[in-house]
């Protein structure tokens, strides 16, 4: 593959651009939406900085394997017991799409399928209306479905968006991290979503 990450990044940006006919490379920007088709390898993990997966002190009375999401912190915690938790950096819903609640993991899926929302099809009419799961799928490598809601904890083909608030209410992890989470958290696990400033 030729310069896959850069190519994929630019391709995803070019939602309505003259990819086929123009000649000037677009500037890079973080102001991006979903990028169907962009490939992020399953091995991608956040390795540096605060959003890297790490064991942290975490005082909680919840049983091990409980998932606690702090939307404002951009962190997801898996309670490990002994006042410890494994912390992952996440991307969260943009303003107006953040929420709080108590859910359970009702289903898990590897390489989930993806259906672009209608408004995305309007903007990017060249997209398939349904994309079977795979490396170019914005849902990423794994998904954990939350109760009967439309929200999920899932992977992403845009790992650079971890720590940002750009989704429609789902919680995204780098593919390598969501694979790790997928293995740790069973169906039926409690998921607590907290929204708001921390004390």
């Amino acid at each position: 593959m030729r310069k896959p990450l850069l190519l994929a990044f630019l391709a995803g940006l070019a939602a309505s651009t003259a990819f086929a006919q123009g000649r000037t490379p677009p500037p890079e920007t973080m102001d991006i939406g979903d990028e169907p088709g962009r490939v992020s390898t399953p091995e991608t993990v956040i390795e540096d900085g605060p959003f890297a997966r790490q064991m942290v002190f975490f005082r909680s009375s919840e049983p091990p394997n409980t998932v606690v999401i702090h939307t404002s912190e951009r962190f997801l915690y898996v309670v490990m017991g002994g006042n410890r938790a494994l912390r992952y950096g996440i991307g969260v819903g943009r303003e107006g799409f953040q929420w709080a609640g108590l859910q359970k993991v009702t289903r898990k899926a590897e390489w989930p399928d993806w259906t672009p929302p209608p408004e995305m099809i309007q903007r990017q009419p060249y997209l398939p209306r349904f994309m079977a799961g795979g490396p170019g799928n914005p849902m990423g490598a794994r998904a954990l479905y939350l109760g009967s809601t439309v929200y999920r904890i899932h992977g992403t083909n845009q790992p650079e968006t971890i720590g940002q608030a750009i989704s429609s209410g789902c919680f995204r992890l780098a593919n390598g991290d969501v694979i790790d989470l997928f293995e740790r958290v069973p169906v039926g696990a409690k998921v607590i979503i907290r929204h708001g400033p921390q004390v």
């Binding site: 310069k3 850069l6 190519l7 630019l10 006919q21 123009g22 490379p25 677009p26």
Partner: peptide
Amino acid sequence: MKAGFAVL
């Protein structure tokens, strides 16, 4: 990068 990769 490909010559045709482009954006106005």
